[in-house]
């Protein structure tokens, strides 16, 4: 059993935490509040010992987006209060504020879910969803998809190489390259579709669609903290709503 205080939490507790951050930054309009979530998430990542992949992931996926979103707002958001100008563009105070609030929310919500997928195993999460009522077929679809994607990627490379030897050109003008798309994808789709019939027979021989309760080898346990924490989130959210509406 994992002894790490973060990693050993129930997957749903972690998922509700990401949802909790999402809802909280929607309720509270202040951008400082939304930006403040980021150090909190960093601390959680550090405790869970995933700080390094967490940060490199954010640098790779979120940074460019945030910069572009921010600049777009700064230059193009309609406003009256001009605070500076660059080339043909006017920078407005409204644009700056809108840029800050938009990027702060994207950063908070985006990094919350990036962290969620660093600290949870997809298999555990799917099992947790199954426990709260997702049909087992759904769990099968998700997990088998994760297996099939790398398999089909390899297959597409093989097909592409094979088509190249036949004389299908993959370099050259846009039209030439676009033409290579069809002979690569069509055989891949057709062969994959044909394979589903075999898979259906295999699954049926193991009573896949037989009615009745399914048992699972993979079990998740809920500890007292996993029962308490979701209520804490709900409590804070209600508190924030009251604060927003009445104060």
């Amino acid at each position: 059993m994992n002894q790490n205080p973060i990693l050993s939490l129930h997957p749903l507790t972690k998922f509700y935490f990401a949802l909790f951050i999402t809802v909280s930054v929607i309720i509270v309009p202040n951008y400082i509040f939304a930006y403040a979530w980021f150090p909190v998430l960093m601390i959680i990542a550090a405790v869970a010992k995933v700080a390094k992949p967490f940060i490199s992931f954010i640098l790779k996926t979120l940074m460019i987006l945030l910069v572009i979103v921010f600049l777009m707002q700064l230059f193009f958001y309609p406003g009256e209060d001009v605070i500076g100008s660059w080339w043909i563009f006017d920078l407005t105070h409204e644009g700056l504020m809108h840029g800050l609030s938009l990027t702060s929310r994207i950063l908070a919500i985006g990094s919350a879910f990036i962290l969620f997928f660093r600290i949870v195993d997809v298999k555990d999460f799917v099992k947790a969803l199954e426990d709260i009522g997702m049909p087992p077929t759904g769990a099968y679809i998700v997990l088998s998809t994760l297996q099939i994607i790398p398999e089909m990627r390899r297959q597409s490379n093989t097909i592409m190489e094979a088509q190249k030897t036949r004389g299908v050109e993959t370099d050259g003008s846009l039209i030439v390259r676009a033409k290579a798309f069809f002979p690569t994808l069509t055989p891949l789709i057709l062969s994959s579709i044909a394979s589903t019939e075999e898979r259906a027979i295999t699954l049926e021989s193991r009573a896949f669609s037989a009615p009745g309760k399914k048992t699972s080898l993979h079990k998740l346990t809920k500890r007292p903290i996993d029962r308490v924490l979701p209520w804490v989130y709900i409590g804070i959210i209600i508190g924030l709503i009251i604060w927003r509406v009445f104060l």
């Binding site: 998809t145 099939i148 398999e151």
Partner: peptide, 18 residues
């Protein structure tokens, strides 16, 4: 959602990615 339709879903998703 018969069995063959269910089995088509992972293929379709993988086709999206590929």
């Amino acid at each position: 959602f018969n069995l063959l339709a269910v089995l088509l879903i992972p293929i379709g998703i993988a086709v999206n990615f590929v």
